[in-house]
Write a protein that binds this DNA or RNA. Structure first.
Lengths: 233, 233
DNA sequence: GTGACTTATAAGTCTGACTTTTTGTCTCTG
DNA sequence: CAGAGACAAAAAGTCAGACTTATAAGTCAC
């Protein structure tokens, strides 16, 4: 996670960003730099820096004589980790979680397949270690410990794929998994079948069995999707 | 494409961004705001805005008493369209194209499957229109016209999936397809088999045949991957 | 060598004046 | 009355300079 509030402009972003991504300002809304600066009690320079950042995320557009206009949702940089975090913290958290889970379902099987081809011995070892950690914490309401190993497992898979675009989705997957454990209904121990699947994926990757690693991971993500459908049909 | 050079800080970014993403400044390199401002002949306020943007892309980190340090590649926001564009324009263009093509291969089949479920009649119509446009321009060195329809086709698929994360990859796919036509070896007419596949995908989506749309799209992206392997084994 | 103190440094912040672009309006003319 | 052109106002953009703050690094006593 990046350091939040590193400076005044960071504080402004921590308020404005969530507000915009939450849809508090409908698309086309016009903000004025000076007014915002007054409202947040910062200088115009600081406010301008904040606006520049929002602009780089395509959340707003700054035009002379007009002001800072909010862009429609369809133009936002929805892959920006900061934007993802803001949206996960806001009202459309469920919708965002669903989008990300669908993305996961597409990416992770492919990543697992590549990992079976490219994973280093170290990564294989790490993978089995994570899987064992999941097994060890799969019973007795040790959800937090389980989560740590689950996140680590998927991070290793994504990194071992050798594709940097996949690797950078590690944070996203972490958010989704953490969200599931912390905010959704997850009082019970994790599904034993899912735990077994993770162990098997680790085996398949170690064995270099591309097709099997992909298929098993597909089953894992299918489970995650199913879980969503049960919670919010 | 976003408007380039919208203001002085934009011009600075157009130079600094490509330089950093091209690896001209190795990770850990320290830049100083004042020096940069002098070098680009802009005021410090402008330079600071540019640095803030680079910081939001995780390309650099600004710390007091130290300066602006370049972050390692692994921390960059590689999904930022701007970063993608910079890297595609630079030296590791081939590497970047490969990464994006692999991402495509994971995402597009899934998107096509969802599109078969969710596409509106209008989107289906648009899709067949695009496919027909591809057929019409598949012979006689009309590569530009073909590209336009090809890009439109994949954009519609991604949008029709109903998943906003998928939809926002439209620009990425457009870049990849354009790159293939413009910069890689592509003197001949497109592969007739690929053209046929597109027509069939349009049919499958219209028919609501999820599995078939997914499988056919998988064949399309597999072809794109194979193409890469031929060009750069 | 270790710890506390000092200092130099570069980012961070604020302010006020000035410039530039753009849009809405107003008028002039056909 | 409509269209073209001139005008004025508004808001972002730019700049320069002074000041503050955090902190890495060096210094000195112990």
């Amino acid at each position: 996670m990046t350091t939040p509030g590193r400076g005044l402009h960071g504080h402004v972003l921590d308020t404005l960003g969530p507000a915009i991504t939450a849809g508090e300002y409908p698309p086309g809304s016009v903000l004025r730099t000076d007014e915002l600066a007054q409202h947040f009690e910062v200088s115009r320079s600081v406010m301008r820096e904040a606006v520049r950042v929002l602009e780089s995320m395509h959340l707003v557009e700054s035009r002379r004589r007009v002001g800072v206009t909010v862009r429609p949702k369809t133009e936002w940089n929805v892959y920006d980790p900061q934007v993802i975090r803001w949206r996960l913290a806001g009202a459309d958290r469920p919708h965002q979680l669903r989008s990300l889970t669908v993305l996961r379902s597409a990416v992770e099987p492919a990543a697992a397949g590549l990992a079976a081809k490219h994973a280093t011995p170290e990564q294989c070892a790490e993978l089995t270690e994570c899987a064992l950690g999941m097994v060890a914490n799969s019973r007795g309401h040790k959800l937090e410990e389980y989560l740590v190993h689950d996140v680590a497992f998927h991070r290793v898979i994504l990194a071992a794929s050798g594709n940097e675009m996949f690797a950078r989705l590690g944070d996203v997957v972490a958010e989704v998994l953490a969200g599931r454990t912390h905010h959704e209904v997850m009082f019970e121990d994790p599904d034993p079948a899912a735990v077994t699947l993770h162990v098997q994926v680790a085996e398949a990757v170690r064995a270099g069995d591309e097709a099997r690693a992909e298929e098993l991971t597909r089953q894992i993500t299918a489970g995650a999707l199913q879980e969503l459908d049960i919670l919010a049909p």
